[in-house]
Design a protein around this nucleic acid. Structure first.
Lengths: 106, 106
DNA sequence: TTCGATATTCGACGATCATCGAACAACGGG
DNA sequence: CCCGTTGTTCGATGATCGTCGAATATCGAA
């Protein structure tokens, strides 16, 4: 948990890396939660996996330019990174819309 | 090269499987070529990989419901599978549009 | 300064992936 | 019927992935 977190230059992220980051059910659920309810404390995710695994997925999302990590006191706040909508317009919106239609939010 | 080829029920394909199929540069180029010029003989792809590798990627695309393989005499014709636009509307269009903008067609 | 809460990093493990060459199967043409 | 063309399948190999527990780092609070 260092600060600052390494975030990639958004223009340097390849499309295929973003698509790969999106191709996992858990990561998709994380993004859907962020899109629905805004930013969120790291610990507030009920992922059903160990902390180390969750940390791994967060890192994949961060390196793909999809989320930003920010330190807030002793915790970590995760938020969608809005530059993604400029880098790849429509991509995240489309995928999340399809995801919610296919696997309905409880 | 058997006939008929096994094609999945389009409704049974998970979104994450499609996204995974899309997350490879070569597969993306194959789809872009099909979208740009319509169906195409298997052998007409200049993929820069061995036939067995190309066959593998074709299989991934087929199993993800993105393309259809059809036998035509002694050859094999590959085409985009249009049911994909009903299963996941806008997904392929969005991705291909972004791909062509990011890596310009020569 | 010591302690607990919070998240990352470090092996390790089995699974999947992208790639290749070799062997194989199916078909049309001689 | 034998051949060449056309893809697929079958190991094999090295890389990456998802997962975990243990160890570690950082910060606020006591």
């Amino acid at each position: 948990m260092q600060d600052p977190y390494p975030h990639p230059e958004i223009g340097a992220v390849p499309l295929t890396e973003v698509l790969h980051a999106l191709s996992d059910p858990l990561r998709l659920r994380i993004l859907a939660a962020l899109a629905a309810e805004g930013e969120r404390g790291w610990g507030a995710f009920e992922a059903g996996v160990s902390p180390s695994t969750l940390s791994h997925h967060m890192k994949v999302l961060r390196q793909a330019g999809l989320v930003r990590h920010r330190r807030e006191g002793t915790r970590c706040v995760v938020a969608l990174r809005d530059e993604m909508a400029e880098r790849f317009p429509g991509l995240l919106d489309t995928v999340l819309a399809l995801e919610s239609r296919t696997s309905p939010a409880s």
